[in-house]
């Protein structure tokens, strides 16, 4: 895996309010890398900063928020140094984005073929005919044969899973380096979810596509991704190989997340809840951010903020569980 090229490298990314310099950062000093053909899963509760990180990579932060520090490298290009105009060329061409709800992301009054062709033509130019041919071949690639060979198809004629396939086809139109999938299967049932993830896996293998997969479903992330990064209140708390991570999470928060999922083959036992809620903006506890909800917090946890361990298993905890699986 080390021989593969790094597609995306994020270093020290910090996102916060543009005006209120003292308010807490919503994404705090986040660093990670995604190699070509690799899938990195971002896991965390709602509000942990997963989607905000994706927005910061794309330079699409909501009004009022700003990147305060850090760099984002896509292959060799430093994205944060680009002008808005130069960045717009990169978006859609070098990096694609798939949202949770494809129906709001697609234009209801234009055919899906036209929407894919438009993306291609805007970035790569060429004739309309060539763009349409490209659109049809992409639709075939994502497994929508009827739209690939048949008449023009509109979003309302498609099911949720098919719409998500169209979103992926649009994201792939210009052979991107990176695909960010933000909760792409949350609205879909298990069977369609498995199909969409099969598709993403195939695209990674065939095209060497790097995928940043944002989800709150830890089981899904552990089953399908190569590596997992757990976010809590804007900070990375654990990072590691997906299979190892699920067997032996070393951060108490990761363990709590894992134990909150009902295991399909382990009938019975009561689910472990995580007490309380993640800290809101401006209400960060001193010391470790997870300490107030942590079942194994000790005195020093409430005073010292832990840093990420440099050696594997990488986690940010003063008292990690380091048992070997």
């Amino acid at each position: 895996m080390n021989t593969r090229r790094i597609a995306l490298a994020v270093c020290g990314l910090t996102v916060g309010h543009a005006r209120k310099a003292r308010a807490r950062a919503l994404v705090d000093d986040l660093s990670f890398e995604v190699a070509e053909g690799e899938m990195l899963a971002f896991v965390g509760e709602s509000g942990s900063g997963k989607s905000l990180t994706a927005a910061a990579i794309f330079g699409l932060l909501p009004f009022g928020l700003r990147r305060l520090a850090g760099s984002v490298h896509l292959r060799d290009t430093e994205l944060t140094a680009l002008s808005e105009r130069a960045l717009r060329v990169r978006r859609g061409r070098d990096m694609g984005l798939v949202f949770q709800n494809p129906l709001t992301a697609l234009n209801p009054s234009r055919s899906v073929q036209a929407q894919i062709a438009e993306t291609y033509q805007v970035h790569k130019g060429g004739t309309r005919g060539a763009a349409w041919a490209r659109a049809r071949s992409l639709l075939a690639e994502v497994g929508l044969a009827s739209a690939a060979n048949g008449p023009e198809t509109y979003p309302h004629q498609l099911s949720g899973g098919m719409r998500q396939r169209v979103m992926i086809a649009i994201a792939l139109a210009c052979d991107p380096i990176l695909l960010i999938a933000d909760e792409p299967t949350t609205a879909l049932d298990v069977v369609v979810q498995a199909q969409i993830l099969d598709l993403l896996t195939r695209l990674r293998q065939e095209r060497g596509l790097a995928v940043l997969f944002i989800t709150h479903d830890l089981a899904l992330a552990a089953a399908r991704a190569d590596r997992v990064l757990v976010l809590y209140a804007g900070r990375a708390v654990e990072e590691g190989d997906a299979a190892r991570f699920f067997r032996a999470p070393c951060h108490p928060y990761s363990r709590a997340l894992r134990d909150a999922i009902p295991a399909i083959h382990g009938l019975g036992g009561r689910l472990t809840e995580i007490p309380g809620l993640p800290p809101g903006p401006g209400a960060l506890p001193p010391g470790c951010r997870f300490a107030p909800r942590c079942p194994s917090a000790q005195d020093d946890c409430h005073q010292t903020e832990p840093t990420m361990r440099r050696t594997a298993p990488r986690c940010a905890c003063l008292h990690p569980s380091l048992e070997t699986p």
């Binding site: 069977v191 498995a194 993830l197 899904l220 992330a221 552990a222 089953a223 067997r247």
Partner: peptide, 12 residues
């Protein structure tokens, strides 16, 4: 189709 993480990632 249910993701089963404990068995590694090749199951589904």
């Amino acid at each position: 189709a249910v993701p089963v993480p404990a068995q590694g990632r090749a199951t589904t």
